[in-house]
Nucleic acid binder design. Sequence first.
RNA 1: UGGGGUGUCGCCAAGUGGUAAGGCACGGGACUUUGACUCCCGCAUUCGCAGGUUCAAAUCCUGCCAUCCCAGCCA
Length: 551
Amino acid sequence: MTQSKNFIEIAVEEDLENPDLPNYVHTRFPPEPNGYLHIGHAKAMIITYGIAEKYGGKYNLRMDDTNPEKEDVEYVEAIKDDVHWLGFDWEDRFYYASDFFEDMYNCAHVLIDKGLAYIDEQNAETIRQQRGALTSPGTNSPYRDRPIEESRTLFKEMKEGKHADGSMVLRAKIDMASGNMNMRDPVLYRILRETHYRTGDDWVIYPMYDFAHPLEDAFEGITHSLCSIEFEDHRPLYNWVVEHTDVTHIPRQIEFARLGLSHTVMSKRKLRQLVENGLVEDWDDPRLPTLRGMRRRGYTPKAIRNFAERIGVSKVPNTVDYRFLEYCLREDLNARAPRAMAVIDPIKLTIRNYPEETFEVFEMDNVPGDPDSGRHGYSFSKHLYIEREDFMETPDKNFHRLSPGETVRLMGAYLITCEEVIKNENGEIEEIIASYDPDSAGGKGKKVKGTIHFVDQETAVDADCYLYDLLFLAEDPDADERPYEEQLNPNSRVIMENAKLEPWIFEHQSPIGFQFVRQGYFVRDEKDQSRKTPRFNRSVSLKDSYRPEFE
RNA sequence: UGGGGUGUCGCCAAGUGGUAAGGCACGGGACUUUGACUCCCGCAUUCGCAGGUUCAAAUCCUGCCAUCCCAGCCA
């Protein structure tokens, strides 16, 4: 496959060849520590860090913490943890925007002294009205042309806490008639008496994103500041700031389309709504697209990285089918996850002609096709469990598992033939009686169409299996007018409390979990240490091409 | 009556004037002690629409249409 370059790589290469620009690449991922990272952030991070890696450059991790109202250490720790988990190492280049507050303050003075910024004493409402509308120009503030000296003094007083919250702001003097709303004298600094999680009460003025971000990039020596598409019309302002504040390093902002994923929601606000309304367990609910949730679900960093690399980079608004994400997970797990026997919804199987009080041990490859993965044994006896789904009393034409009179292979063991079905008073199947062919051990004997898995009753370990499916039924929950509560998939989480697992699962360490043969990939959930029965989360099911045929 | 984006198969996405890559999904088949995996085969006479330039256009020009973002003292 030919590796074509995406538009960012093309731009970066042009810059590298430009003798007037740096001959290296240095990028940054700048989350605001006001929430948990999700798969969309992972995409952004992988693009940003991937560009640095591809061109032999460096990358930083930065907390964009310029708003004391929302940010918290809890999130910075979680973010660092998630970034590391994805496999990225920022070495000693971890930054806080809040560490640059003093430098930013000085840059604001440069603007004031150049007559490019002024103190506006109007309130927020007035400023909003003066901004005009999309199709009509704004009007200049009466403070716009006040003497530089006045603004300088007032700005110092703002910093010293001599003025009330909201009583005045520092604004850039650009163009109130610009078609680009961002250029209509944007606010650069506001007064806010709010304790910042890092700087405490040192500051009562805080810089706005449009002023702070380009400076952070400049201070850190970022060459390419990659961000999502909604910042595209902020770029003129970004460039204006670095041009007029006398910073010595000029970064370049390039925007790409953010990730959309079908059947889920991605914005912090919406995720918060799900968590706070108790519609999911928590931020790490395995059904959420948060990195913490996906981690708990059993997604691997490798699967997420492959996913991000394969969906590509463009500026086209997109919604990737969740099935592509699942495909990437299956691909990784199929290659590495050890196989194990587990019956999720058991019914008893008794082998009539097999002796009591004895057992045999059969072996299977941990990962078929990978000799280095080893093998493990599992026991077989007269009393087993099989999957309820693997038996059908009146099978359709395409069903080739167990049914009355039919023969199937018990995986790795014997051929058995169903002889009798025992039901309880409610008509539910309780037990299957079968006979086995003693000459069919380990694959010998006739070929049969069906092979089913089983667990020996004697050695089985109880477990709860959490089966997950789409959180939302709708492809785009936001396009649906109904509240989220009514859109949730009632079967997004099905708890099976009577699963029977082969004991090896508990003896063998496998951080990526196991493939429960013929069913899917599962990982042990360690969150609740107090639970008596172990819990397993289904990361993703196996594909299933069985289609009942009706005639 | 503003500014900035984007429009190639159901979903991503290559393609940058030479006659539509690839992946996912889907359908069919082979293989199979996982109906998994793997392997074959099929899947856009057409690139938002309409004109134009050219021997030749998804690619160039003109016009139009659709759709997304922007009026926080959020990021």
